[in-house]
């Protein structure tokens, strides 16, 4: 550990990221540009989240990493080990014991509390990017609060599919001002963004943007009066813990098309099983 500066990054880089985080918290939903550094992992592996985590970690923290809800994927394990080695922090898989949680594409099922910080890994921070590829234009659109294009996109969903077909990275409006991409979390998680007790920080390494939601910030999923937002999930109970309220992954289990549905939040599922809840396929 002594071979590295605490939490890997040099101090000047951390100061730059920290200033961006403070401006992000002061302007919820606005994407603050920052000078993203090369990290010892490829872009797309959470370099933005890692840089934000490195800037907020203190030695007393307990750190948890989830990748689509799971603590055990390559991405989650490698980032957890990275901070064990470079910051010397304790790590855990238990949601409520963690003080900093870095996440890829999920919000934990368990309600977070005030002492916690949730750090999102973000691939494309700009919600308007697939509608307008030019940064110079999207920046103007945010400046002028010109979000008509996004509503047209949702309307086209309805005219083509009969409902809003966007199921992840579902756009939200923050404090009635900025339209924000909540990162590719399932829209099932969108309602948790708003009334959250924890601080939420978003880091996009390749795209060099940091944005943030302070606790208890108003976050509204975009919708229409006659097509209200709906937080959807697979209409099944978890095969292992029997939960009907959690977000589930569909897993193909043989070459005959058989499938099972299991909680995407591994810690939540494990805790329920330990508490005696069992689904239909529980061993």
């Amino acid at each position: 550990m002594s071979a590295y500066n605490f939490a890997y990054l040099d101090e000047q880089t951390k100061r730059m990221i920290r200033r961006a985080i403070l401006k992000g918290l002061a302007i919820p939903g606005y994407q603050v540009p920052f000078a993203s550094r090369e990290m010892p992992m490829p872009y797309g592996w959470g370099t933005g989240g890692v840089q934000v985590s490195a800037a907020v970690l203190i030695p007393d923290d307990t750190f948890k990493v989830i990748d689509q809800g799971s603590d055990d994927t390559t991405n989650a394990v490698s980032i957890r080990t990275f901070f064990e080695r470079t910051a010397g922090v304790e790590t855990t898989t238990v949601t409520r014991d963690a003080s900093v949680i870095q996440t890829r594409h999920r919000i934990p099922e368990e309600r977070l509390h005030e002492g916690q910080i949730l750090v999102y890994q973000v691939p494309i921070p700009e919600p308007l990017r697939f509608l307008e590829p030019r940064e110079s234009e999207t920046r103007k659109m945010h400046g002028l609060e010109e979000y008509g294009l996004m509503h047209v996109k949702l309307y086209e969903d309805i005219s083509r599919h009969g409902h809003i077909a966007t199921s992840y990275a579902y756009p939200v409006k923050v404090e009635g001002r900025y339209v924000m991409d909540p990162s590719p979390i399932p829209k099932f998680d969108n309602p948790k963004l708003g009334d959250m007790a924890a601080i939420q920080l978003f880091g996009a390494g390749r795209e060099q943007r940091i944005y943030a939601l302070p606790p208890y910030t108003q976050v509204v999923s975009l919708d229409f009066e006659d097509h209200p937002f709906e937080a959807t999930k697979a209409d099944h109970a978890c095969s292992l813990c029997g939960s009907e309220d959690s977000y589930q992954d569909e897993v193909i289990i043989d070459d005959a098309g058989r499938r099972m549905f299991v909680c995407s939040d591994a810690d939540y599922c494990k805790a329920r099983q330990a508490a005696g809840h069992h689904g239909k396929d529980a061993a």
Binding site: N5, F6, A7, E11, K14, R15, R18, I21, L22, L25, A26, A55, V56, L57, I58, P59, I199, A212, P214, P215
Partner: peptide
């Protein structure tokens, strides 16, 4: 101890700004 002390100081400032 700049790395550790500034990390603690920043957490205080960030918590203050966020709340």
């Amino acid at each position: 101890d700049p790395a550790v002390q500034s990390a603690h100081a920043f957490r205080s400032v960030m918590e203050a700004m966020a709340r």
